[in-house]
Design a protein around this nucleic acid. Sequence first.
RNA 1: GCCGAGGUGGCAGAAUGGUUAAUGCGACGGACUGCAGAUCCGUUUCCUGGGGGUUCGAUUCCCUCCCUCGGCUCCA
Length: 404
Amino acid sequence: MELVLPDTLTGRPRAVRRKPGRPVALYVCGPTVYDAAHVGHGRNYLVFDVARRFLEAEGIPVRHVMNITDFEDKLDARAEELGVSWRALARREERAFLRDLAALHLLLPQLTPRATEYVPRMVEVARRLMRTGRVYRDGNEWTYTPPHRAAGKNFPTDRQLAAHAVSEPGHPFPESAGRAGAFMIWRLQRPPKPSWPSPWGPGIPGWHLECYAMADRLLGLPVDLHGGGLDLIYPHHYAENEIALEFRGRPFSHVFLHVGFVLIDGSKMSKSRGALVPLRTALNEVGADALRWYLLSTPPTERLPWSPVELARSRAEFLRVRDAVRHWMRASAGGRDSAASARRLAADVRRELARGLATDRAFRRLSAWATTETERGGAVARTDRARARAAFRDIEARTGLRLL
RNA sequence: GCCGAGGUGGCAGAAUGGUUAAUGCGACGGACUGCAGAUCCGUUUCCUGGGGGUUCGAUUCCCUCCCUCGGCUCCA
């Protein structure tokens, strides 16, 4: 069964496909490792985890790449604050971040390339952009200004930006009309801050070149599925896509999926506002399965308001479902049911996930099944136990929940 | 301004063309109780934002208007 996702670039549902004989090329934008993961990160990577699990359960191999941004201004600032080197801080936070994702029972990507290892390739991307004649230098920075694109080629942000700049007179975007959508590709900088040699002098490449260089090298462009949090659409994915359009005339990815924010007090969880719930804290409180249930209980592209009450309710709901499954599977209780009920449930879950990764609807199927089977006191017959188990194993494989 | 998601009973929230539009909370009545709470039983007539259209039939599909929420160069 095909996995159809709401594609952000076209605004339409699109099936995830692959090149014949190749695995699905999945590139998920990773974190800047300067602080602990919060539940917003958790939800983001969780959504791609379920997408990958679904494809693999369908027998489709996935090559899953997630970059680690291990040099960046905020990382420098944090390192200085703590009195450690930016490299040491990045390594430490990277380990913690990946450990927390694994604790949420995520399948970790096969490859987690670090930005620091890709600087020479990013320099090469910058060099090619320099040759387009669309780059200008302003002091220590070189900036690339993309040409105007026809509708549908990229996220419709340049129009937005122009309108936004006009509607807010104090907006710090100087020549907005002509330069909407421009992004930095090289900045001069010296140690102890991150710095690498280049034809333009020592410094650092712009962030957007990172994912382009990595995806091109490790997966080949265009990739099949790409995404991250909704906040990455602009400027990050817009910019990556501009580079792909410049060099190849094709978008960065066949399908873009962007995950809705986890909201706290009505607005986005953010490190700068200090309003966030660390992933580790939530995991310690309710465990991976209940947290997965909660984070996936709203459609992936929609926002999820964080609420301790709802978290507790999700935990209770997950446990109710798990207990119902376990009880139903205990054939020693003299069960008479065939495996049909479990197989139907697995088919329902599969169908809901295939259609837009509707985790919320899939979970509702599980809840409904649990209610029905509990009320009628059903239990599987000993002879059908193996087939029923296989059905639940399939659900587990796709959702990452541990039910049996 | 632009992009996106929505407007269902007092509140929250299901139902992606088909019988009296779920369920939960709240409220009200009753049982129990010295009173209250908790618990249990029952009741809750009244609800699909406005206006067109498609259809035998619309909460559901199309158009339009109004309103709400989120986002719009740190960011998952």
